[in-house]
């Protein structure tokens, strides 16, 4: 599965979707990024980049992409 677009990652961070079936790591990370982006909206693009890097680096998280 390819890494999703910036739009999908942005929606993931700005939304509150439950990531049903995702790993614990992905759920906590996404929630952490959501909170950071909520506190400081100017950092949204940094959080998108961080989430993209997490999926690119970690094969275990690839299955989680379908939950976004």
């Amino acid at each position: 599965m390819t890494t999703p677009s910036d739009d999908v990652l942005t929606r993931t961070i700005l939304g509150d979707k439950e990531l049903k079936g995702a790993s614990l790591a992905t759920r906590i990370l996404v929630t952490h990024l959501r909170r950071e982006a909520s506190v400081d909206p100017a950092c949204l693009q940094d959080k998108v980049t961080e989430l993209r890097a997490f999926f690119a680096k970690n094969p275990f998280a690839v299955n989680d992409l379908r939950t976004l």
Binding site: E18, L19, T26, R27, I28
Partner: peptide
């Protein structure tokens, strides 16, 4: 708290 479906 609900962490994207994980209860913390």
């Amino acid at each position: 708290a609900d962490y994207a479906g994980a209860m913390i």
